[in-house]
């Protein structure tokens, strides 16, 4: 990415926090993502005012208010288009988008695909807990078909879950990684790499919902680093995804597609030549 203004003095993760107290349930994985993100920003020494974090709607989409960067809490599913517009108009900023699995893959699913495709230099962090927390625990696109704890889907959804990494790779994301909220330091590293990598970076973070999916506390025991290095070959990455069980952590893919960034340099300074076209 184009490095934005950095601070000369060392930054502490806490410098990136606002005074607003999160509304998340104690024990929620999103607290760790908040920590990971502030660690990543501190590590990069980014000036807080040069960073913008855009979100949609959902538990995890409350994130921007808890940070001392510029934030925008948009409507459900639209974090990516807002972030895209901002980055294209203001390439000098470090633009991040964040949200949950429902926001990003269900109502915002089309934007996810097209943002991967468009490859604007933004980093998208999805906190996946396989459930809609804010509306009291309904199934999300990443929920297993037999999860039957929601009144909305008695007996389970009976619908195959969505594989975000597969979609991201197929749609052309330039950086694809998975992290876990059980390892905020590892997640911080992935986020730093994602921000530094040009183009659209997708970071899938397993972030348990201890209220509606208490069994997800076990994720901590299930996650493990992927035994291989990141590849720039999409074919290799696709092969690896064939055996991915959703718990391998680390960077899967680092592509080398140039980001989409139109040149915003004016070539004329008044409108007379434009208006001339209308003259008879």
């Amino acid at each position: 990415m184009m490095e934005t203004a950095t601070s000369c003095t060392p930054m502490k993760p806490k410098d990136y926090k606002s005074g607003v107290k999160p509304v998340w349930c104690p024990g929620c994985g999103d607290f760790s993502v908040l920590m990971a993100l502030t660690k990543a920003l501190a590590e990069m020494r980014l000036a807080a005012e040069q960073v913008a974090l855009i979100s949609g709607i959902g538990c995890s989409s409350r994130l921007p208010a808890y940070l001392n960067v510029y934030g925008f809490h948009s409507v459900h599913g639209r974090a990516l288009p807002v972030a895209t517009g901002l980055k294209i108009a203001r390439p000098d900023l470090t633009v991040l988008a964040a949200g949950g699995d429902g926001d990003g893959f269900s109502i915002g699913g089309n934007h996810f695909m097209h943002s991967c495709r468009r490859n604007v230099d933004i980093t998208y962090i999805v906190m996946d807990n396989q459930v809609y927390g804010m509306t009291k625990g309904q199934a999300s696109p990443t929920t297993d078909p037999d999860w039957d704890h929601s009144k909305l889907t008695p007996g389970g959804t009976k619908v195959n879950p969505y594989y975000p990494l597969v979609i991201a790779l197929a749609s052309g994301a330039n950086f694809i990684a998975r992290a876990s909220s059980s390892d905020p330091n590892g997640a911080a590293k992935v986020i730093v790499d994602a921000i530094r990598h040009p183009g659209f970076s997708f970071v899938h973070i397993l972030s348990p919902c201890i209220t509606f999916r208490p069994e997800q506390r076990d994720w901590k025991k299930m996650v493990r680093p992927a035994p291989v290095e990141a590849t720039s070959n999409p074919v290799t990455a696709a092969h690896r995804l064939m055996t991915d069980d959703n718990f391998f952590l680390g960077t899967l893919y680092k592509g080398n597609r140039p980001p989409y960034q139109p040149d915003l340099t004016p070539v004329i300074d008044d409108l007379s030549s434009i208006e001339k076209d209308f003259e008879l």
């Binding site: 913008a52 855009i54 510029y70 925008f72 948009s74 409507v75 599913g77 639209r78 288009p81 807002v82 972030a83 895209t84 517009g85 901002l86 980055k87 294209i88 108009a89 203001r90 900023l93 089309n110 934007h111 695909m113 097209h114 139109p262 915003l264 340099t265 004016p266 070539v267 004329i268 409108l271 030549s273 434009i274």
Partner: peptide, 25 residues
């Protein structure tokens, strides 16, 4: 010519939200 840009979005949901982002900026 004037240092601006037109983005053809994937749909109107995206386009209106692109504007919110750019205008926020």
């Amino acid at each position: 010519k004037v240092g601006g840009v037109l983005v053809q979005a994937e749909d109107e949901l995206a386009s209106i939200n692109h504007l919110i982002g750019s205008s926020f900026g």
